[in-house]
Write a protein that binds this DNA or RNA. Structure first.
Lengths: 191, 191, 191, 191
DNA sequence: TCCTAAGCGAGACGGTACGTCTTGTCTTCCA
DNA sequence: TGGAAGACAAGACGTACCGTCTCGCTTAGGA
């Protein structure tokens, strides 16, 4: 197995396609954007598209890989676990037109699901060490993690749907205020 | 304006179509079910289908109208507000094959959205009277309602995805345990 | 078997339907007129339409039955056989809007076929007695009759398509001038 | 503007579709043949069909383009103008099953109309030079051309409907015998 | 004059074909 | 010779009409 230096054009094509999709989402929404639209905008052949991505959904998800990798590398570390939410609220804010175009649509559901998976393992791994001390908690740890992530996404969705009436910091506070009490009580330790 | 007696056939057709869809969802999933499948199963003409429903999605949603109407009529009344969750957990349990076939798919997102709308107004109307006394709360009432509904749906989803490892009563307790503390603190009054 | 007096409503319904079709043909053409259009215009139930006519085509043809019966009763008699053409040219002229709306379309083909059948037997019966004397003619009598009728219809079509640039009398002369020489020569006797 | 070499597949697809239609016409008639039948027989996608032809009618007409082009190239030249009829009678004879399946139906009307247009200009262009000498003729040249073409098609139709009881040569003679005298007289010169 | 069978309107229904649309694969040809 | 262009198979979609049918109301014409 040879280790190849990746063709520089490959990165270029993927980037162009991603940019084409993003601009099209903002213009006409993800659902109304067809593969044909994307490759027309990107000046790319149909087969080229499918050489790089399984389908339109894969292309969309790939756009969030950067965010995921950044978060993944940064981790939670010694910060207040709830602080991660702030990063995400801010990211949404800085890409508002894109998020706005998707929220409430099928594409948003997909993104949520994608985010859910990643954030879930991030949170669970953060909670596990603390929880391992306690034998038995009234609420299973997995459910708590799922609850935290879902609550965050729910607030994010609400925030975007209502045109961001509060700051990212305020939203983080609200999120923490609504979620932390129940989690702490349910798990039996301070998160 | 004449008051017409409604054609008895209409109700029958709508019911047959709904039943056909439900059975097909269980067999092959909502997304893989085509309109053709439905009308074949229901022994109904294509145009008849479109005379009654805008599309496949509308038919699916109509299937939940009964549940919605039942809840709507029953209301929350004097019960513990959180008890409504039990009704819904139980409903899901008693229609498990149907729910199971949809959870995690696009159809589930749609149902969630449909449920969200209805439950949101139900909850908000339940909270409003209590909240009107207090001038200012750290958390806006709308956000709290949104949070409650989303949390419920998140737990329901988790429960179904994991093959209902707990009873409906246990899930209601967990739901209440995770959600109530934050809401009470955030709103400044006992829900 | 009782002989009933026919219900007066029946004739009325048939007439109303025929009138509705004729007016619709003039307005939007026969092909674009649907059964729904007709029964809407006629204020008649769908089933009533089908109780009276097999389909739209049958209704159209029925409109020409009057003309056919009139010609049939009048016959050719002692007149110049070619004079019948004049009657028909004049009929077309007096119903120009209707004919104009059909000529060149599928409906015109149907009318032509309908007319062909009737006129063919009219002409053949007119020629037969004269031809029976001669044993053998270079051109079969049936072909000659077919030729005469087709030529007439061709000229009628041309005339209507070109907005009737000549009088009905002129067209009759042209028709006779083009057709008679060949027929007389082919049949071997004066028509 | 780049001159592209046409994709070889295109011609193939069009040919296959045409062949599929022809065979289906012979088997079940043009009117009963659906687009679905054609694409099934041709092993072609539905969209491919519509990428090449506007509709079923267009495909049918395209099948006669070869014949038209052949005649067009060959022209009338120095031959007896009436000889063209022989070519056409013979063509019909050699494709009898196809013609037989259409004659008398709507499809035949369409073909007749298509043929009429082409043959009319062929004949008129053939007559014009001869007629320009004469100032005034009792019968307009356009009518004469229309008459000739219609007469030919009428005889062709009769011939096919009656299972070709005469040879193509005989039919040509009959055609000429019936038509030429009137035309020569009407135009005032020998055709 | 009554009453009864038929005509009738309204429109739901099963069914068929249409032309459009989008997807993911596969082939051709150009640079 | 590798990738852009785009032809292609597949198949679901929503629309348009058709001809059949069921349902009650109305009404003509025989009793």
């Amino acid at each position: 197995m040879k280790k190849m230096k990746p063709d520089r054009r490959v990165g270029r094509t993927r980037r162009i396609l991603s940019e084409a999709l993003m601009s099209l989402i903002i213009e006409k929404g993800y659902e109304k954007t067809t593969v044909q639209d994307i490759i027309d905008r990107a000046n790319v052949g149909r087969s080229t598209f499918y050489a790089h991505f399984l389908d339109k959904d894969a292309l969309l998800r790939s756009g969030f890989d950067n965010l995921r990798d950044a978060l993944s590398k940064k981790g939670i570390g010694n910060r207040d676990g709830w602080a991660v939410a702030l990063d995400l609220f801010q990211h949404a804010q800085s890409h508002y037109p894109l998020y706005k175009a998707m929220v409430g649509k099928h594409s948003w559901d997909m993104i949520q699901q994608y985010a859910q998976k990643f954030l879930f393992s991030l949170i669970r791994d953060h909670l596990k060490p603390k929880g391992s001390a306690r034998k038995k908690t009234p609420v299973p740890l997995d459910i708590a993690a799922h609850f935290i992530v879902s609550s965050f996404l729910a607030l994010l969705t609400w925030w975007l749907e209502h045109k961001m009436p509060h700051t990212a910091e305020q939203m983080t506070e609200i999120f923490k205020g609504l979620t932390k009490p129940g989690v702490d009580a349910g798990l039996g330790f301070e998160t």
